[in-house]
């Protein structure tokens, strides 16, 4: 086993063995179950239609269409979950002294950090994708119980794509959380800062007040990437690129949104490695 493989394997196992990695997704899954139960009890005569709901989640509603974006919330919840897990994967281990312990085993800091990031991102990809698949499964159950599942198997590539993108979003935000936590050297500061950013700065301030800037921001792009929407000033729900390009406020598509997220994350991780390499561990 090479050194890189050893670091990747050990740190991936370490992440998956942590309570945070298990309990956060399980909590979200439990919330989904509760949501489905509530939906079953309150859904009207129309019921839930699997294809319509999934399709609206994947492609976005046509303007004026009020159908529910079923996978849309994952574009919001998965980044938060992944960021918190990423932040605590460094912060908690820093606090308990595990980072110091690990550096006596693998003193090459870049290798240790990048090994942790890549193995953690891979693990969170799986966790986030599994959570998304679980949501789809719950919707299928809800649809079969209250509405219809007609045509469900015809759209499986579309559904699979959404699941994979959700997993990738999780991986990217894991790395972002890890990197930013290394930089500020505190998981509490990193997580609290991120939540303030998400709920106050990006959602309540930048999006309504500075729409030109919002197209570059992580949560806007995460939502677009998972939902396969374009990103535009003020936000809109257009999934078809041709249609998007014809709209006056279109800025970039879902692929660019994913690349932009990856770039944010890479910058954070790169800076983290540079800072960590120079830092005294004490």
């Amino acid at each position: 086993m090479s050194v890189n493989t050893a670091v990747f394997t050990a740190e991936g196992q370490r992440l998956l063995s942590r309570r945070m990695t298990r309990l956060f997704p399980l909590g979200l899954a439990a919330a989904m179950i509760v949501g489905v139960i509530i939906a079953m009890l309150t859904v009207g005569d129309e019921g839930v239609h699997f294809v319509d709901d999934i399709a609206s989640g994947v492609y976005g509603g046509i303007p004026g269409d009020n159908s529910t974006q079923v996978l849309g919330p994952l574009g919001f919840l998965v980044p938060i979950m992944a960021f918190v897990i990423g932040a605590s994967f460094f912060g908690a281990d820093q606090k308990t002294g595990m980072i110091e312990q690990l550096l006596t085993w693998e003193p090459r800091r870049s290798r240790l950090l990048l090994g942790r990031i890549t193995s953690g991102a891979a693990a969170i990809f799986v966790v986030a994708a599994a959570l998304s698949a679980f949501v789809v499964m719950m919707l299928y159950i809800l649809s079969s119980a209250t509405g219809s599942t007609d045509g469900a198997f015809d759209i499986w590539p579309t559904v699979l794509g959404a699941i994979v993108r959700s997993g990738l979003t999780g991986a990217i935000f894991f790395a972002l959380g890890f990197g930013l936590t290394v930089l500020v050297n505190s998981s509490v500061a990193s997580i609290v800062g991120f939540l303030i950013y998400v709920f106050v700065i990006e959602t309540a301030l930048v999006q309504p007040l500075l729409p030109k800037w919002s197209v570059w921001l992580p949560m806007t792009n995460a939502d677009a990437f998972v939902s396969r929407n374009g990103v535009g000033q003020g936000g809109f729900f257009e999934g078809v690129e041709i249609l998007n390009n014809q709209l006056p406020n279109f800025h970039h598509g879902w692929i660019a949104a994913g690349l932009l997220l990856a770039a944010w994350s890479a910058v954070a991780c790169g800076a983290a490695v540079m800072v960590f390499n120079q830092r005294d561990i004490d």
Binding site: V7, A10, E11, Q13, R14
Partner: peptide
Amino acid sequence: QLLATLGR
């Protein structure tokens, strides 16, 4: 065990 894996 995790340290052993890390240290091969």
